[in-house]
Simulated assay, not measured.
Amino acid sequence: MQTPNLPAIRALRPAWNKGRIVGQKLPLKPKHVWAIRVRLELTENHRDLAPFNLAIDSKLRGCDLVRMKVADGMASGQIKARASVLQSKTQKPVRFEISEGTQASVAKWMEAPLMVGSEFLWPGRFHGRLHISTRQYARIVRDWVGSIGLEVTASGTHSMRRTKVTQIYKKTGNLRAVQLLLGHTKMDSTVRYLGVELDDALAISEAIEI
Rank of each mutant, 00 (worst) to 15 (best):
V66E: 05
K69Q: 08
A55L: 12
D48Y: 10
V70L: 06
L40C: 13
K69L: 06
F52S: 04
N53R: 15
A71D: 05
H46Y: 07
D64N: 08
N45R: 04
V70E: 05
L54K: 11
K59Y: 12
R61I: 04
M68E: 00
F52K: 02
L42S: 03
L54P: 04
L65T: 01
L42V: 10
A50H: 02
H46W: 11
G62L: 10
D48N: 13
K59A: 09
C63D: 01
I56D: 09
K69Y: 06
E44G: 01
L49N: 10
D64P: 00
K69N: 05
L60N: 06
L60G: 07
N45A: 09
D57L: 11
L40D: 00
E44W: 13
H46V: 15
D57I: 06
I56R: 00
A55G: 06
S58M: 11
A55H: 03
R61V: 03
K59E: 00
F52H: 03
I56S: 04
C63Q: 10
L60I: 11
A55R: 00
L40G: 14
P51N: 07
A71C: 09
R67I: 00
G62V: 12
D64W: 08
G62S: 13
L42E: 10
D48I: 09
L65W: 14
K69S: 02
D64E: 04
C63M: 11
R67G: 00
D57C: 07
F52Q: 07
R47Q: 12
A55K: 01
A71Q: 06
E41C: 15
T43R: 12
H46M: 13
N45P: 15
A55Y: 08
R67V: 02
E44Q: 07
N53M: 15
L60T: 04
D64F: 12
I56V: 12
L60A: 09
R61W: 04
T43K: 10
N53K: 09
R67Q: 11
L65G: 01
C63V: 12
H46A: 14
P51Q: 07
E41H: 09
V66S: 05
G62D: 08
L40T: 07
I56Y: 10
D64Q: 09
V66D: 04
P51L: 12
E41P: 08
L40A: 11
P51M: 10
L49T: 07
D48L: 13
A50Y: 03
H46G: 03
T43N: 07
N45F: 15
I56E: 14
D48A: 10
A55E: 06
C63N: 03
L40W: 01
R61Q: 00
V70S: 01
C63S: 05
L42A: 06
D64K: 13
D57T: 05
K69H: 07
V70D: 10
L54D: 04
L54T: 09
